[in-house]
Design a protein around this nucleic acid. Structure first.
Lengths: 340, 340
DNA sequence: TTGTAAGCGTTATCAT
DNA sequence: ATGATAACGCTTACAA
């Protein structure tokens, strides 16, 4: 029932080859011919069969998005930004979510579902293992990492080390000397994951404050980048070290959990405790959470652009560093003096 | 370089037809033959070309997800639930997001990108216009609506009318008589959108309280289901009617905006003002927001299951109503007495 | 600039 | 239960 390419060809009085060329905007078609073909196609409401053209051409005009989450702030926004850019360029988006299972570990990337299906892959906020990386490369299509990616590969991400360090500096500048951390827990512990890099950055911040902060007084707990994880980590931190004046969570979502725990315990923010996060979550303003903000959907868009450029044969540099912005809010204040 | 079906056929010593049958688990294949084929396929790391099999079979093993957002709570969770279910069933997910543009209106659904590409469509939290509905039906594939859908179509959603009514009842039961509403604003104003149905439900709740609440004392403002919209609406509400004791936002995200505005104005919650939302947003607990909660990812999973069943030829009922749960939190309290 | 015709890699029909 | 073979609907050399 749906019109096929030879219906259009017949109607326009040309060959199917010409229809194909005209519809795809290839150069070697006479203007008059093209008009005629376009007209005929429109009249028949013709759309080329994607499977047929993929089979014949060898490419799918589809980009795979591999992500461990859709609902989390960073991933949702990156996906949104990437989708918009890809669709605008006429590409489809195949969503491949690898949810965490009950044991907090996630399914491995299944490259078989991507094989022959996509022209390129965007890996969103997902530290991949060596085997997964090999599998992804085995796909033989452009590969771009957003949020974090192995060095040497094309990636767009914030400066995790720098951002984390700056946060510590902000706290130190406000007189905080007893700072607890809620770090992220990477699923696959690779050295380039945000969890690890933010930890390193914080470390660097502390190192710079070596003269004022005791090396042994830098308590750390782990939340797994989730609200509940952050809450539990905060609980452990507070139990262990009642003298803290600030908690630095390595993501806003964990910081939310920290705030919840503090509220439950009647610890006032910022009077008794300053709290900082990283990310720039939309709802940070609601609870007055100071943070180091990044633009997630912007990174998604850039990542998408990069795959498209690689597809077009352009040589793209391996690293796009995205800027962060310090967003001071009421959750962080100068440490109260002993007299206060 | 990648193995094709005749490579497998040759290696297993059978015809390509048998390989195809064996690999797809069709019944009429001898056990021994199947084993041999499976073995050969595994050795060659063979995966059937999706485009080729789509072209030959006429179906794509792909479901389209049409949504106006990825980053909003409801949509993100529905997508997550649906994706998981679809992938488990061996289906791919094509993400089609229709972002809002600057003018707050959204792009129309472009059915051409879905044509011949998907075996079924899941419309997520999107009130579609008559034309869009016609276009979607024109696809000729199973169509399921999650979150809200036109009557008579297959849909899974919460009881918006009932939930909204129950919220009003909860407030009335706590003595509130001056209740302001922040309603949602549907992009396409269809009678079955959550915005409209929640408004109707609230209306019904007020009607039941007719003897205690003046008909003319039910102020309403509109936020567009966003935090900022909710905040602006709350501002208008408060300016207009300083005597309110409760604000009922028709979504948690708008309620967050209401809370932010109240805090800015120094209005204490719940001492001076009770606030309620609808949805069960993950971060509601953080700010103590009482709400009528629904299970978004569950609805996504059910929606996915329905498309799959329709694909399998099952007759599915047109309506799956999803239960809601009242979640009392500290943002709602009995109205303070005049003496209080 | 346009047409002819050979793929592209499966599935499905019809025999056997 | 298995094999031949004709679709499936397009793209792309190669010719003209």
């Amino acid at each position: 029932m749906a019109a096929r390419i030879d219906d259009v060809a017949r109607r326009a009085g040309v060959s199917t080859a010409t229809v194909s060329r005209a519809l795809r905007g290839l150069p070697s078609v006479a203007a008059a011919t093209r008009t005629r073909v376009l007209q005929a196609a429109a009249e028949l409401d013709y759309i080329a069969s994607p499977s047929a053209s993929s089979l014949a051409s060898g490419h799918t005009r589809t980009i795979g998005l591999v992500t461990p989450s859709v609902s989390r702030w960073f991933h949702g926004h990156v996906i949104e930004g990437a989708e918009r850019t890809l669709r605008a360029a006429g590409f489809d988006v195949l969503l491949h979510a690898l949810m965490l299972d009950a044991s907090m570990s996630r399914a491995s990337i299944d490259p078989t579902v991507l094989r022959r299906r996509v022209d390129g892959v965007l890996v969103v906020g997902l530290p991949v293992s060596e085997e997964e990386l090999a599998a992804l490369e085995g796909l033989g299509v452009p590969l771009v990492f957003v949020g974090a990616g192995p060095p040497g590969h094309v990636r767009v991400h914030m400066d995790d080390v720098g951002a984390a360090r700056m946060v510590v500096e902000e706290l130190v500048a406000r007189g905080h000397r007893r700072i607890g951390q809620v770090q992220g827990t990477p699923t696959h512990s690779v050295p380039w994951s945000p969890a690890v890099e933010r930890a390193q950055g914080a470390e660097a911040g502390f190192a710079a404050a070596d003269t004022v902060i005791d090396r042994d007084d830098r308590p750390v707990e782990h939340g797994d980048f989730s609200v509940e994880g952050g809450r539990a980590a905060a609980a452990r931190l507070l139990d262990r070290d009642p003298g803290l004046t600030a908690v630095y969570a390595h993501s806003d979502e964990m910081a939310f959990g920290v705030l919840a725990e503090l509220e439950d315990r009647g610890v006032r923010v910022p009077e008794d405790m300053s709290v900082v996060g990283i990310d720039g979550h939309d709802l940070g303003g609601l609870v007055g959470l100071a943070t180091m903000a990044q633009d997630a959907s912007g990174q998604g868009a850039v990542g998408a652009t990069l795959v498209l450029e690689m597809l077009a044969g352009a040589a793209v540099g391996p690293d796009v560093l995205y800027p962060v912005t310090w967003v001071p809010r009421r959750s962080v204040a100068p440490v109260r003096t002993a007299a206060g």
